[in-house]
Design a protein around this nucleic acid. Structure first.
Length: 806
RNA sequence: GCGGGUGUGGUGGAAUUGGUAGACACGCUAGACUUAGGAUCUAGUGCCGCGAGGCGUGGGGGUUCGAGUCCCUCCACCCGCACCA
């Protein structure tokens, strides 16, 4: 929907009440909220769900209306402030509005209803104006017995609570704004003087002006008032939710059809089990049915059954499938049920769910709800579907920009260049009834800077280079200024020739077709941001922010004749920004292309290497070389002079240490989803083994298995070259042996007053006392101790030494 | 406005319980080799300083022998909700 019409066809969009199927997710609101504590999800996601459920506790009660039988039902979280309720507000859509409005106020109310109906949701959200209208009717505050006016206003929403409120302007910010604007009474009922800094929203303070509540703390008063309300029979304590029941009908073809039929009287019945599954009927006509009905309603043969029953023609939304597909995965080919009891008992639930945060409140909420329902039906053994959830970040695009010079660019830089060359000119000088950009009166020389169509017009008119008063006119194109930005002598020569009397404008003929682009570093250095327009450029013709200028000219016809202001090195540097990948931003990198160039293993590892799994981060094509280099180096460990060559010799202590340290690190990091540091560990190991010139099977074989989940294809090939029969992915995964990691000597940093001043090797089994003594003897430490007293020495075994002196 | 999160070199990031900040990689600089190629190899690379040394994890303050990590406070950015009574 755009501007009230459908974006595709331009048809008007109207709101319409329709009977629809709803899922009573609200019945599970409390369990959906409290069970969040039992699952391993991120805080962000849990709070999102809990805000979405929006549980609040308060009271629901009735206010009598003066002179009417009607009562107004309201919901409040602050029953303690009821003595301060000086007026009431109904949502404009509230059903009592028409009944209560008095004749005198009819026009005001009609005007207001017209106003609020015309305002879209977006209007209401973006400008929160204080608006409203008086109905002319009065309610009775059940505690003060005072008559209080009933208003209508947009700020009360029909969809939350009861669509009506008691307004307490002393203790609610919105009510206060409203009361002030319309001059309504404000009675203070909560004394917050004991709580400096507390806002109106904070439920703290001492109750005043409230009869039997006086002197109570807010929390205490809420309980007391709830009791009183129930005692008086005018209301009850109540829990309220923001969460709404889920609309489950769609008027579309694609979607699961409802297994529901209606009898002659329109009562719904479920299809018999033997008639399931109900499949979508085939059709080639997907147009909507009459009156906004689903396309299925057009298929009369399918809709009308022999026994006089008719089928439901709406279909289910996408969440119908996504709410429980993981259960079907447990037993995909079972023809009788979604999954056998044996299968669900075996698989239980989803141990780890990796998905985007965009599913936070829709899919992930529905799936939990469905799962809980199935649990209640005894069909699944667990209460929650996804025990642990990790939100992977989005790979963003790194966009590049070129900077097109605006009209004002040339004038400004021309002026600066003239200043640099100490050439004195006047600007905006009046000549022959008009103005020229620059003038040198002593030489009777006028200079105009022209570009684009302006230049084209000038050339077509073929104005003479001299006017009647004897002034000479030199035209310089914007493109020239840019072109010779670092070689301005050429333009100075033209000016000098013009002073002598030779003016040659012939080269300007084509300049107007040349857009001018300025290198980003020049834009920065010369502060040209406002004189240029940043345009997205295809990242595929930019390398390391350096533009391939020829490719740029061929990129789009408009840029065929582009001129560039390069930096002093002759390169055109592009600006950059991290944004969502998008075609319009020309920052999309095609993974197929990357896989073709580097292979799937390198691509896969580079995605892991980019950073933590939860973080969104920019795709940086350059960095993939690092992983590619690693992969080749790892491969090279198995080769000597391009021949596969693996030694059967026993490994050294140092080599075993590299292997086992890597196994330990990688296995630990996998446990905490830190795949980027796993890749780093593999790189370190490879670098170390390269230096040791290690090609021993005893080291390389376990390393190959360890790497297999990260680089499945390459490792499989190496595995076979190692002469192993089965798949590397079925090999026993290595476990580290702590004994290989033991050190005889440990390097200790030695600090003086917390600042590291030296390092020294001490035996790993040295006692604290031995280290303390030895540390003071270390070379480079002595000079820090001169003339000072050693007050304390802290030794953390196998970590560090800190000497406190003073 | 409310709620959640994040701030570390030129860049992506590492530092798992308070214990050598900057692992690993990109980029950059210099050099080697070379059919000069966006290949490969070697060395260097937080900042300031010739040096000794000083400074340094968004800013300020605190706890501690020791703080990127804990506490207080301020700032910036990102995400979610948004008149929820």
């Amino acid at each position: 929907v755009k501007d009230g019409v459908s974006e595709r066809g331009g048809y008007p969009v109207v709101q319409k009440a329709m009977p629809q199927w709803n899922l009573r997710i609200t019945a599970y609101a409390d369990r959906l909220l409290y069970d969040l504590e039992t699952i391993e999800w991120s805080n962000a996601l849990k709070t999102m769900q809990s805000n979405w459920i929006g549980r609040s506790t308060g009271a629901q009660l009735f206010f009598e209306v003066d002179g009417h039988d009607e009562k107004i039902e309201i919901y409040t979280t602050r029953p303690d402030t009821i003595f301060g309720a000086t007026y009431m507000v109904l949502a404009p859509e509230h059903e009592l509005v028409t009944k209560l409005t008095t004749a005198e106020q009819q026009k005001d109310i009609d005007d207001y209803l017209a106003y609020s109906q015309a305002r879209s949701e977006i209007d209401r959200m973006s400008d929160k104006q204080v608006t409203g209208a008086f109905t002319g009717a009065y309610a009775i505050n059940p505690f003060t017995d005072k008559k209080i006016p009933i208003w209508i206003a947009e700020y009360v929403l029909i969809s939350y609570g009861t669509g009506a409120i008691m307004a307490v302007p002393s203790d609610d910010e919105r009510d206060q704004r409203f009361a002030k604007k319309f001059g309504l009474e404000i009675i203070p009922v909560v004394d917050k003087s004991d709580y400096p800094g507390a806002t109106l929203d904070d439920k703290v303070g001492k109750i005043i002006n409230s009869d039997f509540l006086n002197g109570m703390e807010v929390k205490e008063a809420i309980l007391a008032m709830n009791e009183k309300i129930e005692e008086m029979g005018i209301g009850t304590a109540k829990v309220n939710y923001k969460l709404r029941d889920a609309g489950f009908s769609r008027q579309r073809y694609w979607g699961e059809p409802f297994p529901i039929v209606y009898d002659e009287n329109g009562f719904a019945e479920t299809l018999a089990v033997e008639d399931l599954p109900l499949e979508l009927p085939e059709t080639e006509d997907f147009k909507p049915g009459k009156g906004g009905k689903s396309p299925l309603s057009r298929l009369e043969d399918w809709v009308n059954l022999e026994n006089g029953y008719t089928r439901e023609t709406d279909t289910m939304p996408a969440v119908a499938g996504s709410s429980w597909y993981y259960l079907r995965y447990m037993n995909p080919n079972n023809p009788d049920t979604f999954a056998s009891p044996a299968a669900v008992t075996y698989w239980q639930d989803v141990d780890l769910y990796v998905g985007g945060a965009e599913h936070a409140v829709a899919h992930l909420m529905y799936a939990r709800f469905w799962h809980k329902f199935l649990y209640d039906m005894g069909l699944v053994p667990t209460n929650e579907p996804f025990k642990k959830l990790v939100n992977q970040g989005m790979i963003q695009g790194r966009s590049n920009f070129v900077y097109r010079a605006n009209e004002q660019f040339a004038e400004k830089s021309f002026k600066e260049k003239l200043k640099e060359y100490k050439i004195d000119v006047q600007t905006e000088y009046p000549i022959a009834g008009g103005y020229v950009d620059f003038a040198m009166p002593e030489h009777k020389l006028a200079i105009e800077i022209k570009s684009g169509s302006d230049l084209q017009r000038y050339l077509e008119q073929r104005k003479p280079a001299y006017d009647e008063a004897g002034w000479k006119l030199l035209v310089i194109s914007t493109q020239e200024v840019g072109n010779y930005y670092f070689n301005f002598d050429i333009i100075i020569k033209r000016i000098n020739r013009a002073i002598e009397g030779t003016i040659d404008n012939s080269h300007l003929e084509e300049d107007y077709t040349h857009p001018l682009f300025i290198s980003y570093d020049v834009v920065q250095e010369k502060n040209l941001a406002e004189l240029t327009t940043a345009l997205h450029v295809d990242v595929n013709i930019v390398n390391n922010d350096v533009l391939d200028m020829e490719a740029f000219q061929n990129w789009r016809p408009d840029y065929k004749n582009a001129y560039f202001v390069t930096n002093k090195a002759g390169s055109y540097i592009c600006g950059h920004a991290v944004e969502k990948m998008s075609k319009s931003k020309y920052n999309v990198v095609n993974p197929d292309f990357m896989v073709a160039q580097y292979g799937a293993d390198v691509f896969r590892m580079y995605e892991m290497f980019l950073g933590p799994i939860e973080a969104s981060k920019p795709w940086d094509t350059l960095g993939i070389n690092g992983v590619s280099k690693f992969m080749r180096r790892f491969w090279d460990l198995f080769f000597t002079n391009e021949q596969f060559s693996v030694s059967e010799d026993a490994p050294t202590k140092a080599e075993l240490k590299v292997l086992h340290a890597t196994i330990k690190k990688v296995n630990e990091d996998i446990e905490r989803f830190s795949f980027n540091t796993c890749v780093s560990a593999f790189m370190e190991a490879t670098n170390d083994l390269r230096k040791m010139k290690c090609n021993k099977r005893a080291i390389l074989a376990p390393l190959t298995i360890l790497l297999a989940p990260f680089a499945p294809y390459t490792t499989e090939e190496l595995w076979h070259r190692l002469g192993e029969a089965g798949s590397v992915h079925h090999a026993n995964y290595p476990i580290h042996d702590e004994s290989y990691l033991k050190e005889d000597e440990i390097e200790y940093p030695i600090s003086i007053n917390g600042k590291k001043r030296a390092t020294a090797m001490f035996p790993s089994d040295a006692s604290k006392d031995e280290i303390e003594k030895a540390a003071l003897e270390v070379e480079g430490i002595q000079k820090w101790l001169e003339g000072k007293t050693v007050r304390k020495i802290i030794v953390v075994p196998k970590r560090m030494v800190n000497v406190v002196v003073g």
